[in-house]
Design a protein around this nucleic acid. Structure first.
Lengths: 198, 198, 198, 198
DNA sequence: TATGAATGAGCCTTCATTCAT
DNA sequence: AATGAATGAAGGCTCATTCAT
């Protein structure tokens, strides 16, 4: 999202943005096997230009995933200052779902890219703060951790994506169900201890 | 699982079974990009033999997915005859999760294979019966449909798979959360109407 | 030269031979950067066929170099049984020169391929025997070792190759000069100790 | 080395020199496939700057080779005025060897660059003068020509380079052997007539 | 002149699939 | 039915070179 090191020339910056957008669409449409050639085509640049911005396909993916994490972190931090802890958590999940183009950001899983790992941990931390506040306010079960919610971020979109012909807003239904499952209504303990975070 | 059309020779039937098993493992380990060569190696046959059993990679995948659907249908039908409607639904989700090798059976989504579609619809029907019974017994919300539960089958495993280093049983935690979200505790309506099924 | 492990099908063996020949010519003509595509074209097979015979370009080169070493070893061992030690050594260098297509077998240098290393050491040993016999017969200086002659094998062809428009037999001239340099005429010591061999 | 046509600005001249040095090192280290990018990096300039000095990679190589020829010509002419004809020829070969960074200046062979051809012919002429004097003094065989020695210049370094782990001075050994081969000890005629020079 | 960026051509390699035995 | 071999179609990546600033 925000380039930090070098202040790219205007045209290069534009191409970089075009490429990231094209890549995201292509990955969403074709999965992680989308070809660099198709991404370049969609962005309207030559194949080699992709590699002048991102040294490898892996690095391109890392940039996209990193951006997602960074954006979501911003959202989470902003909502942390809002008045209503319940609405804050709910709104976070809602805003997050909007950013998840179709099913394929499954690759939110670990890549051995240190920058991505760092950004992911930042997000994890911001989400945890949101969850802590919600728990303190009694709107989620005592046992629910930030890690739980972090893992659940993609679930509604993923679930809706299993439908062969889903309404674009179907994920809202499953988000509501999951959110209800997080509420402190039930007394029984959850079957597994909360997962730790590396 | 059950061959119907042609009476394969004994050794050919055995090879077919070996291939299906090898393919499933390989797909689970390497994702949908697992190569036919690796699958053949693991099954101990020549690459070309794969194509004498399955006309294409797509068909091989269809066979695996179809088998999964068929197995789950058997499970759902069996549980339909059990005494406790709540336990039946819960047990179904649990047994289903066991069959889902890691995250990659996301390809439960539509393939334009008529046999698979049929088997998927069979499963959908069996699950719906299970859900109808549970709903009638008041253990799930009135609005929850069989389609909802069908779409949720993979979710727990998928969610746990988002953790970089998850306990193999972590999915149980998220299954419990989702199951709680299905319960008729809350009065509010879910945000989206239940999805229809084609 | 001699395949040992599996008794390749007839057509495959033919293609392998075609490929080795085509590769050798192409490497001779274009240097080590000759492309696999050109080699495949020259052999009249598809590009992918090259890789079904040799897992990588490196392996193809190793096969060629290995064959050269093996052939020369055979020559050296045969000449070891001839009557005249001087003629034997001289003939070896002559026969060797015939096998060196143009300048580029400079890659007789080490590749980290264990089989090639082994074959190279075999040749080194055979040449050393030839040199030992020649030295004992007083036809080469006392200080000349097998390693010296091994290193000199390619020199005549290389030297002639420096001429922009050389007669195809020009290397014979430089081989004679070098051979004369090896003779025990002069009393002075050579400036460097004989190189060791790993 | 000596620019003749255009009076380069001081910094441009410096960059040109930096580039030539960097290119020579890079070619020596990585062979003729050294990339322009690496050369530019080593020289501390941008890639495009290389092309503002040399229109193509070929031209860059031609400049390097041309410089080598020019330098060696200077050496040969200087030694032509020394007292001892034998030492002069020997010293020439020795000084030449120093300038040949590893094996890869094999590209002393013909390039269709007229300036390089001219410089090469200058060197050929200077070497021939040296050889004529040596022959007249009876220190080389009657049949040895300047062309012979010209072709032999690179041989010692090349031969030593065939050793997988050579002492940096090993070429001296083979230079001595070759030089001995040039001496008028033997009466037999060399097998090929002396090559003509275009 | 120097450079950051862009690019077309080409390279090695992989893979699903076909063919002949 | 099973297989060893062959292959066309990509795919990721590199590089010399060009272009605009």
């Amino acid at each position: 999202m925000i380039s930090s090191a070098r202040p790219l020339r205007a045209d290069a910056a534009r191409n970089r943005e075009l490429l990231l957008a094209a890549a995201e669409e292509e990955f969403a449409a074709r999965g992680i096997d989308a070809s660099i050639a198709d991404i370049a085509d969609r962005a309207g640049v030559a194949k080699a230009t992709v590699f002048s911005h991102f040294a490898s396909k892996e690095e391109l993916i890392a940039a996209i995933v990193g951006n997602h994490f960074a954006e979501l972190t911003v959202v989470a931090r902003r909502l942390l200052t809002s008045a209503d802890p319940e609405a804050a958590l709910s709104d976070f999940l809602t805003e997050a779902a909007h950013g998840i183009k179709q099913q394929d950001l499954t690759f939110l899983r670990a890549d051995d890219d240190s920058r991505v790992t760092e950004l992911r941990n930042d997000l994890h931390e911001a989400v945890s703060a949101l969850v802590d506040r919600a728990r303190a306010a009694g709107v989620v079960r005592a046992e629910i951790t930030g890690t739980d919610v972090f893992l659940l971020i993609c679930a509604p979109v993923h679930i809706a994506g299993c439908h062969p012909d889903a309404d674009p807003d179907l994920w809202r239904r499953y988000q509501a169900i999951i959110f209800d499952g997080l509420r402190p209504t039930r007394a029984e303990l959850l079957p597994q201890p909360p997962p730790s975070w590396p």
